[in-house]
């Protein structure tokens, strides 16, 4: 399984004097099969971190090493919004990213659409689907290339609470089934506690302030006492750092 090693990673945006620091010299590792959440308030550099890991953005300095058995790992990405091509059918949207995996395989794409219960929409355009369904297509697209590492950037933040909860369950089931290494960005502490095996706490200015294992058995009921306690503990840590004030 893919491993992620990040060493002294720094990202500055020029324009200010001094430049705006989005990520401040952070280091961490993620091992195979882990589900790691990066949690922090808005503007603390969470999405910038994922963009650097995926190659969309570049770091000012530092090292990122994402490998799978010594070769560069295959990455899947689920964005905040589904980012589907509106002029292509649902199935074609999955086929569009297949060269990342190898030759296009329609059957594999259909299988992952079935896994998110959207097999029947294969021939439809994204505009014909609801926001929640579009996001499920985005998840199926990322899983369909069978990535070594899955990057997820607040994938449920644009959805209503009921749809988000149902998609969290689906994501957890998919992760249990495939055991992909996942790096999941969220500002929702409850979501992080419900899904993760580990939580990285990011503070404004892109500082990594804590690296906490979540030792609770799956499946986790958000209403259960131990989950509520873990959530409260995490929130207290954030409050003690005065992170939520702004």
């Amino acid at each position: 399984m893919a491993g992620v090693r990040v060493r002294e990673l720094r990202k500055e945006f020029p324009g200010g004097d001094p430049p705006v620091v989005a990520i401040e010299d952070i280091s961490f590792t993620v091992d195979g099969q882990e589900f790691v959440s990066v949690v922090g308030p808005s503007g603390c550099g969470k999405s910038t971190l994922l963009n650097i890991l995926s190659g969309i953005d570049t770091a000012t300095r530092g090292q990122v090493d994402i490998t799978q058995n010594g070769r560069p790992a295959r990455l899947g990405y689920v964005f905040q919004s589904a980012r589907l091509l509106p002029w292509r059918s649902v199935l074609d949207n999955l086929l569009f990213v297949q060269p990342a995996r190898g030759p296009a395989d329609r059957e594999r794409c259909r299988r992952y659409l079935d896994m998110v219960r959207l097999g029947h929409t294969a021939g439809q355009y994204p505009g014909q689907l609801s926001g929640g369904m579009q996001q499920r297509v985005g998840i199926a697209r990322a899983f369909s290339i069978e990535p070594d590492l899955l990057l997820m950037d607040e994938p449920f933040s644009h959805l209503d609470a009921i749809t988000a909860r149902s998609l969290r369950r689906e994501l957890h089931d998919l992760w249990q089934e495939t055991r992909k290494t996942v790096l999941f960005v969220t500002h929702d502490v409850s979501e992080a506690v419900e899904l993760s095996t580990r939580i990285l706490m990011l503070a404004p200015g892109g500082r990594l302030v804590a690296d906490l294992p979540v030792r609770l058995p799956f499946p986790r009921d958000p209403a259960a006492d131990e989950v509520a306690l873990a959530r409260a503990d995490l929130l207290r840590r954030f409050e003690s750092l005065d992170l939520l004030a702004g």
Binding site: I56, L75, Y77, S81, V97, A100
Partner: peptide, 21 residues
């Protein structure tokens, strides 16, 4: 540009980006 970034994140090069986006 979010679609172009999506294509880049999945490793698609300039030619498919021009053709499909």
């Amino acid at each position: 540009h979010e679609l172009v970034d999506m294509a880049r994140a999945f490793g698609r090069g300039p030619a498919p980006v021009v053709r499909h986006i």
